[in-house]
Design a protein around this nucleic acid. Structure first.
Lengths: 209, 209
DNA sequence: ATAACTTTAGACCAAATGTACTAAAAAATT
DNA sequence: AATTTTTTAGTACATTTGGTCTAAAGTTAT
């Protein structure tokens, strides 16, 4: 018999693997148990429902995202920080991609997780606002050309952040993890380009090449 | 007993209503039949599987989208055309929103529909390429600032087009159809702004106000 | 009106799933 | 060593779902 924590960890690990591979809706408690060679009633003992597993995995993701954020503050240069933290953030998200792929479905029947998710979104938006403000001050991003321009831009990038994984699942089923992340991180960064100042654009081209 | 075509139409109509309201995965053949007060075996007689219904509804959507496209060609002014056709396009898509909300899931188990979908995507990309080229020629969009800039921009707007409905489902469950469409059509149009020339921006502000 | 067809309902089956209950095995505590 | 708590497997049940088969009812064509 495994120790309590080891069991729970193993369950989460296998569930994550199956959710990512087969989609959240196509994985039953019984399947996860079978893959672990334990009885399904045993699994239920640890996690009452599939939603509890999803919530636990979301907490894992959250922990990693927060850790990354703390680290990201240390970047002094905006453009450099954008490149680095985008890629790392995308990697973490991809590890838990089932959450984004089946986001709608999961949130619909998991009110608690939905509340957390919306809270995180607010924080994320605030964070982007700060990044933009600082970049404008530092002269890497230009000023707004009409009121609220950056508010709309942040909406754009939030939508992109929420959906690039789904997009990759539809259009690039056969590509490897690394290629997909590089592709979409690159695409994400290029959303910022038209808002850069001349100085910002110079830096941008220097890093690209 | 209803005439053949009437029956099929009624089934599609009710299925669309249920798919949009409860999500594709949460609606069974039996539920659709029950809501229509017919036996499920009768429904199966008309449509063998749920996927067949999804395919039929996708065909409906496709028909309407093609009709809109033909109409859209008549706009002489780029900015005006952008505003008009975006809104109309978004309205059509919203009518069949379950297709976008559960896109991943549906395409995963409907190979035929996936093929069609990817074909349509290619056409859509070509269409956007033409729109951009013409707008550049007419002096409403600026030239590329680096090679492939508009290719990436088209990727951006494709991702947005595929995912704004999912986004609306998560963030704005309580808003009405009209408000949601206005909100996201506006957001979509604002993605184009930074690529406009001075002349284009002037037109943009004139229409906005 | 009769025959051929289309459409419909009902009964039945098998598989999958969530859930509850019980008892045994293992681990921890005293 | 004995007791208590935690973990585990097994069984059984109800529900949902997709699917098949059959026979009846309705429609159309001859």
């Amino acid at each position: 018999m495994l120790k309590k924590n080891k069991s729970k960890e193993k369950i989460l690990q296998k569930a994550l693997e199956l959710f990512n591979g087969k989609g959240f809706t196509n994985v039953s408690i019984r399947l996860i148990a079978a893959e672990l060679n334990i009885s399904h009633s045993n699994l239920i003992y640890h996690y009452k429902t599939k939603n509890d597993i999803a919530t636990a995995l979301h907490n894992e993701l959250l922990g990693k995202a927060i850790a990354l954020n703390k680290q990201a503050v240390t970047y002094t240069d905006f453009i450099e920080g954008l490149f680095e933290s985008t890629k790392k953030g995308f990697e973490i998200l991809y590890e838990y991609r089932f959450l984004m792929i089946d986001l709608n479905f999961i949130l619909k029947e998991n009110e608690a997780l939905k509340t957390v998710f919306l809270e995180v979104e607010k924080i994320r938006a605030k964070m982007y606002e700060n990044v933009v403000q600082n970049a404008v001050k530092q002269g890497d991003l230009r000023n707004e050309l009409y009121p609220g321009e950056y508010r709309f831009f942040i909406d754009h990038i939030k939508i992109f952040s929420d959906s690039w994984i789904v997009s990759s699942q539809i259009y690039y089923t056969d590509l490897t993890k690394k290629v997909i992340i590089d592709l979409y991180a690159d695409l994400f960064i290029k959303m910022w380009f038209p808002y850069l100042t001349e100085k910002g654009k110079e830096k941008f081209f220097r890093i690209i090449s």
